[in-house]
C-alpha cells in the first residue's frame, strides 16, 4: 500500500476524522458507564444539579484529555479518576471543609455486637436489613458523607461501584494497602453511625410489638 505525501489539507482532514472517531468512541464509552458515573457524582455532590454539573465537567475534561486514556484499559476507572479529581479540586477551591466525624474507633463487628447486646438475634434471615429498613437512603448517604474525606471517597467507590481495591487505589492515587485500611476503618466508623440511626427505630419497633 502506497502513501501519497501528506499535505497540510490532508493532515487537517485526517486529524479531523481521527478526532471525530474519538468523539464517537468517547461517547460510547461514556454511555456504557454513565449510570455508575452519575451515581458516584450524585453521592459525592449530594444534589442532582451539582452531580450533573460535575459529570458534564468530567466528560468535557476527559474528552479533551482523551489522548491520555490508553485504549483497551479500564475506561470506567480512568473516568472516575478524572471525576473524583475535579470534585476534590472544586471543593478545595471553594475552601469548603469536608464534613468530618471525630475519629473514635469503633470496634470490629460493631453493629453485630450492639444488636446482640440489645437483644436482637442477628443470626437468621437478613438481620442487617431488618435493623436498617427504617433508616432512609438519605440518612445512609449522610452517614457516609460525614466520614472523614479519605474514608468517604473510598467508601463511595466501594459501595456504589463495587470496585476492587486495586481500582479504587488507581482512582485515588494511593497504594492498595491504604485503600484496604481506609475501607476497614471507614466501615467501622460507618457501622457506628448506622447503629445510631437504627437504634431508635429498633426501640420503637419493640415497644409497638409489646403493645400489640
Amino acid at each position: 500500500m502506497s502513501h501519497s505525501p501528506p499535505t497540510e489539507e490532508h493532515d487537517a482532514a485526517h486529524r479531523s476524522v481521527e478526532f471525530k472517531c474519538s468523539v464517537r468512541e468517547f461517547e460510547n464509552l461514556l454511555q456504557e458507564n454513565l449510570r455508575v458515573a452519575y451515581t458516584v457524582a450524585l453521592r459525592l455532590c449530594g444534589s442532582r444539579d451539582d452531580a450533573e454539573d460535575l459529570l458534564q465537567e468530567a466528560a468535557v475534561q476527559a474528552f479533551k484529555n482523551f489522548g491520555a486514556y490508553t485504549s483497551g484499559t479500564n475506561f470506567r476507572a480512568w473516568f472516575l479518576k478524572v471525576l473524583t479529581n475535579i470534585f476534590l479540586n472544586q471543593r478545595r477551591r471553594k475552601q469548603r471543609e469536608p464534613a468530618t466525624t471525630p475519629i473514635e474507633d469503633a470496634t470490629d463487628l460493631y453493629m453485630y455486637s450492639m444488636a446482640k447486646r440489645a437483644g436482637c438475634k442477628p443470626g437468621g434471615g437478613d438481620p442487617a436489613a431488618t435493623l436498617l429498613e427504617r433508616v432512609s437512603t438519605a440518612q445512609i448517604a449522610e452517614a457516609i458523607d460525614s466520614l472523614p474525606e479519605e474514608f468517604s471517597l473510598a467508601a463511595w467507590l466501594y459501595f456504589v461501584d463495587e470496585l476492587p481495591y486495586a481500582e479504587i487505589a488507581e482512582i485515588l492515587g494511593c497504594p492498595v494497602g491504604t485503600v484496604r485500611s481506609r475501607l476497614h476503618r471507614g466501615r467501622k466508623l460507618l457501622q457506628k453511625q448506622l447503629w445510631e440511626l437504627a437504634e431508635p427505630h429498633m426501640a420503637s419497633g419493640s415497644k409497638a410489638r409489646k403493645r400489640e
Binding site: L109, M111, Y112, P122, D126, P127, A128, A129, L132, I140, I144, F159, V160, E162, L190, Q191, L194
Partner: peptide
C-alpha cells in the same frame, strides 16, 4: 451479618 450489611447499603 457483615456481608448482608454491605449488600444492604449497596
Amino acid at each position: 451479618f457483615e456481608g448482608q450489611l454491605v449488600s444492604f447499603v449497596r
